[in-house]
Simulated assay, not measured.
Amino acid sequence: MAAEQRLRSVNFWSGVVVLCLTIAGALVGIYQLNEVLTDEQQVPLAELSVQGELHYTASEEVRQALTAEPLGSFFTADVDDLRRRVEQLPWVQKVSIRKVWPDKLSVYVTEHKPVAMWNGDRLINQHQEVFRADITRADSSLPQLFGPENAVKETWKEFNRVQQMLEVNGFQIRALRLTERFAVNVVLAQGIEIKLGREATLERIKRFIDVFPSIVEHEKSKNNEIDTVDLRYDTGAAVAWREAKSES
Rank of each mutant, 00 (worst) to 15 (best):
A2S: 10
A3W: 14
Q5I: 15
R6S: 12
L7P: 03
V10G: 10
G15P: 10
T22F: 12
I23M: 14
G25A: 15
A26W: 08
V28N: 07
Y31T: 15
Q32W: 08
Q32M: 06
N34I: 10
E40S: 14
Q42G: 05
A46V: 13
V50F: 07
Q51M: 12
L54W: 03
S59R: 13
E60V: 14
E61A: 07
V62W: 06
R63A: 13
A65C: 07
E69Q: 14
P70G: 11
P70N: 08
P70H: 11
G72V: 02
S73L: 07
F74H: 03
F75Y: 15
F75R: 06
T76Y: 03
T76I: 07
D80V: 09
D81K: 13
R84Q: 09
E87C: 08
Q88Y: 04
L89C: 03
Q93M: 11
S96Q: 08
I97M: 06
R98E: 10
R98W: 07
K99D: 04
V100I: 12
W101A: 07
P102K: 05
L105E: 01
L105W: 00
S106Q: 09
V107E: 03
V109H: 01
V109T: 02
V109N: 02
T110F: 06
P114N: 06
P114C: 01
G120D: 04
G120C: 04
N125M: 02
Q126V: 06
H127M: 10
V130C: 01
R132Q: 12
D134C: 04
D134K: 00
I135A: 05
I135F: 04
S140G: 14
S140A: 15
S140W: 04
P143A: 02
P143L: 09
Q144C: 10
G147F: 00
P148T: 01
N150W: 14
N150M: 14
K157G: 00
Q163Y: 12
Q164C: 11
M165Q: 15
L166I: 03
E167H: 07
E167L: 12
E167C: 13
Q172W: 09
R174S: 15
L176P: 05
L178F: 02
T179R: 01
E180W: 02
R181F: 04
F182N: 13
F182C: 11
A183R: 05
A183V: 13
V184L: 02
N185S: 12
L188S: 02
E193P: 11
G197N: 08
R198N: 09
R198D: 12
A200D: 13
A200P: 08
T201Q: 11
T201C: 05
E203C: 09
E203D: 14
R204Y: 02
K206I: 13
K206Q: 14
F208R: 00
F208Y: 05
D210V: 15
D210M: 13
E217L: 11
H218L: 04
H218I: 14
K220A: 00
K220Q: 00
S221L: 09
K222P: 05
N223I: 07
N223K: 10
N224M: 14
D227G: 09
D230S: 05
D230Y: 00
L231M: 07
L231E: 01
L231D: 01
R232L: 03
D234C: 06
G236I: 03
A237L: 00
W241N: 01
R242T: 08
A244L: 08
A244F: 01
K245H: 08
K245T: 14
E247K: 10
E247I: 12
E247R: 09
S248H: 12
